[in-house]
Design a protein around this nucleic acid. Structure first.
Lengths: 108, 108
DNA sequence: ACCGGTACATAGTAACGCTGAATAGTGGAT
DNA sequence: ATCCACTATTCAGCGTTACTATGTACCGGT
């Protein structure tokens, strides 16, 4: 992936994943697949798993182990109240930034 | 500043500064002031100067020392052709990301 | 027995913005 | 004369994040 996008994803990738989880519970492998569908083709699996560990440790998600028919057991993540709060804060920060940049792009 | 915004600025702050320089040449101290005017109230001076060093080393700006009436000489930065190219790439990456996130915010 | 798809995990690295401080010149207030 | 505020730049050390590369493990089809 471009270095530019790599840097730009810092901080936003977490928000993106929280937003995906707001649509419904999901497990890591599934999230990487959804990211690919969303156009983030080159996000490494390892990146997603590391991110999920972080948001779990910060208590933004509830975790459940669910057996899979075709592989090791899945770790299903569900956004909880604190996670929804974090997602709201993310949208707020993002909104500010997007607003500023839209303003700048207009040529002032 | 919020940790969230700190992380989100990674990658975008450079684009913001390039966009400011696209409006006309400026020196470091002036850029931090413009950022404040634009609403980025809490961006550290040291951050801006470090960023300017980076974009100078990457050849995105031309630099000129200009004496100041009220202090040490100013380093005036002017966006050059490579800088405008980098700015275009930034807007392209930003556009992609903003588009994806707008899509996500709609609830899918 | 092997290979590909599913599923999770981690050690090491690079990049970036922040904190805090140092340096240095000018002008006005006390 | 001295102190303070404003102008202007620079640097060392830190924390966070995403990437690379690799390893583990389970399953079904050939």
């Amino acid at each position: 992936m471009g270095k530019q996008m790599t840097e730009m994803l810092k901080g936003t990738l977490e928000g993106i994943v929280l937003a995906l989880l707001a649509l419904g519970p999901a497990y890591g492998y599934e999230i990487t697949a959804r990211l690919r569908d969303q156009g983030f083709a080159d996000i490494a699996e390892g990146t997603v798993y590391a991110l999920l560990v972080r948001i779990e440790q910060r208590g933004l998600v509830d975790v459940e182990k669910v057996p899979s028919e075709k592989g090791p057991p899945r770790k299903v993540f569900t956004l909880n109240a604190r996670g929804r709060e974090a997602l709201d804060e993310f949208w707020s920060s993002w909104g500010f930034l997007a607003d500023r940049l839209a303003h700048l792009k207009e040529g002032q």
